[in-house]
Design a protein around this nucleic acid. Sequence first.
DNA 1: GCATCGATGGTG
DNA 2: ACCATCGATGCA
Length: 208
Amino acid sequence: MSHDTHTPTKASAPPRLGLAFFRQDAITVARGLIGSTLVRRYRGRLRRARIVETEAYVGPHDLACHAAKGRTARTSTMYLPGGHAYVYFIYGMYDMLNVVTGPADDPQAVLLRAAEPLDAWPADLSGPGKLTRALHITRAQDALDLTGPALHFLPCPSPAPEIAITPRIGVDYAQHWKDAPLRFLDAASAAVSRRIRARYPLTSETRP
DNA sequence: GCATCGATGGTG
DNA sequence: ACCATCGATGCA
């Protein structure tokens, strides 16, 4: 095609999710990442995984969001424009991978909680700490550009999966925000138990 | 299936 | 003194 701006010599590499996607609000991005492909290049090796669980942290007014405590050394990357990684260390052992969303100085993020390995890669990615460990993602990737070669996303193929919505995990301290429906799951994934499906039936298929 | 607990260290 | 976790253990 005459107006194709990428990869003119190689045949169609799939388009990455770009800035227009990441600069949307955290809820939209959290939903949109379900079924998308996470691509990680580490020491010359390529790993791919299909995202099946995310959580949205929607801003300083969200008492479960790290930005609720204001701008600190740890949380400053959340204030970058959407499309950067926010990676933090917790419980003395685990790194958590988040996608910063929204415009600059609007600290929202999406936590990646679970994925399914692709390409017959035998890994357990069912949990945010396990996901980062398997993909070799640490604080060294904090503030990394998520449209670059080391770590990026490919859009969810259509049709988009059905999505279950529940409260977030591990935020019981967050007063009324602990119950906010901000966790998104691929309802058909093995990562979603029967109990979750029974308690949190699918919300109506929302507008695209 | 569910509840409880300890590991382990950055953070404010 | 927490904490956006995990794996082991115990019990049903």
